[in-house]
């Protein structure tokens, strides 16, 4: 999957309260959440963002509350990928689980500036900065994670695997849940 868009740059420790303030958590509707995405860190974000754009940030992106509404609001706002120097643990899992690609790259996080146009290959973990003619690398997604992303999230991924339902229990075969092995 190749992603392309312009960068929106933020600093370290962007927390989930800033991404989607709790005053909007009385709904889980992604389109409603998208209207307030990044509101407390960048009031103009929703106005400036275009489909496919990429958020770039420093260390510990997504720290704080475990609200899955945070990556949901970012995805529904049209963002195609987040690049950060590092991610907070719960946010990392939540983003993958809802099918929002995220990449860790210190070099990319430091060199990219707001407005740069980026092109990303998730399979290879390659980030091209078309504005600055630079390229950066990050750890490529393993196959199963790419499949989760391509299925638009974990639940759809589980549903799409043949024989993944355990009919007796009406549940899901736990062996298919090994996605977490990415290590968070």
């Amino acid at each position: 999957m190749i992603l392309k868009g312009k960068a929106h740059k933020y600093g370290d420790n962007v927390n989930t309260d800033e991404i989607i303030p709790a005053r909007y958590l009385n709904t889980a509707d992604p389109d409603e959440l998208a209207k307030h995405c990044m509101e407390d860190i960048d009031g103009d974000f929703v106005k400036n963002v275009s489909a496919g754009d990429i958020i770039v940030a420093g260390k510990n992106f997504g720290c704080g509350s475990s609200r899955e509404h945070a990556p949901l609001s970012i995805k529904a706002a049209g963002v195609s990928c987040i690049i950060a120097e590092s991610f907070a643990r719960i946010f990392f899992r939540n983003a993958i689980n809802i099918g929002l690609p995220i990449l860790e790259s210190k070099e990319a996080a430091q060199k990219i500036k707001t407005g740069d146009v980026l092109e990303i290959s998730l399979k290879e973990g390659k980030i091209k900065n078309l504005t600055r003619h630079q390229s950066y690398s990050s750890k490529p997604f393993p196959d199963f994670l790419l499949k989760i992303i391509n299925s638009d999230g974990l639940i759809n991924y589980i549903k799409n695997i043949p024989n993944s339902r355990d009919k007796k229990k009406g549940g899901v075969n736990v062996k298919k849940l090994q996605y977490c092995c990415y290590g968070r």
């Binding site: 475990s66 719960i90 899992r93 939540n94 899901v172 849940l177 996605y179 977490c180």
Partner: peptide, 20 residues
């Protein structure tokens, strides 16, 4: 440990969770 809603949904189905 804290998790997100999708991880919790998976546990509601299976009773299990994966960890590193």
């Amino acid at each position: 440990t804290g998790v997100g809603s999708t991880d919790l949904a998976a546990c509601m189905l299976t009773g299990k969770a994966w960890f590193k």
